[in-house]
Nucleic acid binder design. Sequence first.
DNA 1: TTAAAATTTTAAGGTTTCTTTTAATGACTA
DNA 2: TAGTCATTAAAAGAAACCTTAAAATTTTAA
Lengths: 220, 220
Amino acid sequence: MRILYVEDEKLLADAVSHLLKKQGISVDWTDDGEEGLRLAKKPVYDCIVLDIMLPKMSGLEILEIVRKQGIKTPIIMLSALSEIEDKIRGLELGADDYLAKPFKTTELIARLNALNRRPPIRDRKILKYADLKFDIEDRTVNGVSLTEKEAEILKMLIEAGDKTVQKDYILGHVWGAEMLAEDNYVEVYISYLRKKLASVSKKVKIKTVRGLGYKLCEEK
Amino acid sequence: MRILYVEDEKLLADAVSHLLKKQGISVDWTDDGEEGLRLAKKPVYDCIVLDIMLPKMSGLEILEIVRKQGIKTPIIMLSALSEIEDKIRGLELGADDYLAKPFKTTELIARLNALNRRPPIRDRKILKYADLKFDIEDRTVNGVSLTEKEAEILKMLIEAGDKTVQKDYILGHVWGAEMLAEDNYVEVYISYLRKKLASVSKKVKIKTVRGLGYKLCEEK
DNA sequence: TTAAAATTTTAAGGTTTCTTTTAATGACTA
DNA sequence: TAGTCATTAAAAGAAACCTTAAAATTTTAA
């Protein structure tokens, strides 16, 4: 896990960073609001921890701008005990959690973990056809892994359902506009796919529609 | 609430104790480091307040010993303004907060309350996958120790379970946002990890998903 | 502070896997 | 049956990946 920590008290920041690193959490630290805003836009952080009192630009301002740009990275706000109204304001602006200073680092760790336990934004897409389960991210069908081209073709076939996918269509979409590619490429890959599907399902076959293309079908 | 207060300035200690008692906080005071250590081990205190400059044994030493013995009582360090590095060191050693001298007693009370707002749950987290046991704090898998980067990567892989972790994701979250890093870094570290895992488990392997990333798998 | 140790980065060569190409053979239909 | 279309195997080529060792850097200990 990697977090961005915007905090102007260097001592506190050092100590907290050190403890977080012990937990296997990488920390990018800055004491500057503007720098914080710039970094916050990078899509590598699992969480952003924002102190409210900062030079140049307050944590609340950063929060507001970041959220207005549609960035959904979880954000935890930090503030001194007295600034209670800031808590409300922060949550209204789209913060995910709030921690009063002083806080125990274990508490911060607990909250970081809590925020990252919730289902990841990109949910796992699994295409299904009969007894086939095709995991796009893993590039596997029922466990066996496919190469990139195999996967692209299978995706088309499953998405087409029982309809025929034309050979030219596959050629155009998998090999692209550079029409140096030949019909035979598709034929070769269909062959590979058939072999892998056979090892994984008795039911599903790729049927060829002569002169047109291919489609999936389910046999009993 | 009951606290242990280790402080060698008797006048200050008396004054602070008096004010805390007014707030219903019982104070056990000692001016002696060794005595402090002995008392600190007793599981009766809600918080321990440790001055750093002490005769015989410094507050930092007490802190270190106490934490090494697995005692989780919240600890607040006190230090003069000048002893800046001590603060960092204190937090690194497992202190929960620090307060610079001179301080207002109200401030101390606020922090005592803050630390006791929540139950102190500092559990040692051990991630597991098949027969792997990965201790995050120790940075060891089944006994063998990992470097920081190795550990971060293994943590990601275990947390992903059987899902593929993309190479770019690893790069971004381990090496950071500024993207000077190259693919080869990941490959090198995967190689190191494989070597260490092999020495520790026959079952678990890191599988590469070509063009995508890596994932753990368990072999029979 | 310096020296030693550990870790990280760099770089190069080797290996594996995937893609493309070729081509021989088999199957369909006009 | 001729001619088109489909399947398969196998090779050559390309790209991704692995490993290693040494250089550079950071950390640790004295």
